[in-house]
Amino acid sequence: MEFKDYYKILEVTRDASQDDIRKAYRKLARKYHPDVSKEANAEARMREINEANDVLRDVEKRAEYDALAAGVSAGNGAAPPAGWDRGFEFSGAGGAGESDFQDFLNGMFKQAAHKRQGFAAGQGDHRGAGQGGGFDGRSGGQAFKMRGEDHHAEIEISLEDSFAGVTRELSLRSVQLDEQGRPYMGTRTLSVRIPTGVREGQMIRLSGQGMPGEGGGESGDLFLTVRFAPHPVYQAEGRDLKMQLPITPWEAALGGKVHAPTMQGEVEVNIPAGSKQGGKLRLRGKGLPGDPAGDLYLILDIVWPPADNEATRAAYQQLASVAAFNPRHHLGVQS
């Protein structure tokens, strides 16, 4: 089992101060943040950096990690707990999801934190009780009831899945609690019907599928944020779809009827005479389903035939002689 060296990931030494760790994290976060980074594998790297930072920035978690790491390097049999390096993830037929190691770590560490908190609450210290959700500290520390944590993950679906709705089987590896309330890595399979018309960025709530509660507390929820897999033809923007529609110069100039694909099948589209490159045509209701349904925007892309034979060359020459067209006129040049 691979044991991740968080110090190496953050490019700091094991005796680095908390301030060094903070600085190192910020430097790497600027470099690898997927929104701005041009580095290869920025997203995966950033996830790793976040994992390392989540542990090392917290003095208590860092100490627990150091103790564990010392056991591993000494080879004295103190192996990391089962699943230490494994994420909370989905792997299902056709299903892609975010491997979210943080959720696992949060599960592990917060479990410990909640136990400490439960003890402290018995002493009348309610610090952070609001974050646990449903924590009942009034019982004087004898028994406590705590709602399980919510989990967040992403699920990637295709536009076709959104259009028609789809049932996905998700293999979920997550921290579960045994009868004694001890955490262990378990796998369970969820069959989830993704509703028709779901959009990029929307969240799906699966009630009771987060972390189990403690002391009879209810389970948390699992939230899936929908991401669309890149589509070769369409781009989604909310409920609307966009696609490039190649047309000929004569279709653009003279107008005419052409065929265009849509998610519901081929349709005939009227290209107005005098259409320009990048011009948009809207097909109402041909976007993602919903109430109201989205629209499909066709972005016109004028494609010129190559002058690769005598007849076409002659046609271009004829066009040149009759069009008297200077596209550089606005630049102040004669021809």
């Binding site: 089987e169 969240m203 799906i204 899936l224």
Partner: peptide, 20 residues
Amino acid sequence: NTVTVCTALLVDQDAPVTIQ
């Protein structure tokens, strides 16, 4: 392996997130 069939609720329609 047990398969749990879940009802997916759209946060924007059926199951909004509370402030808490």
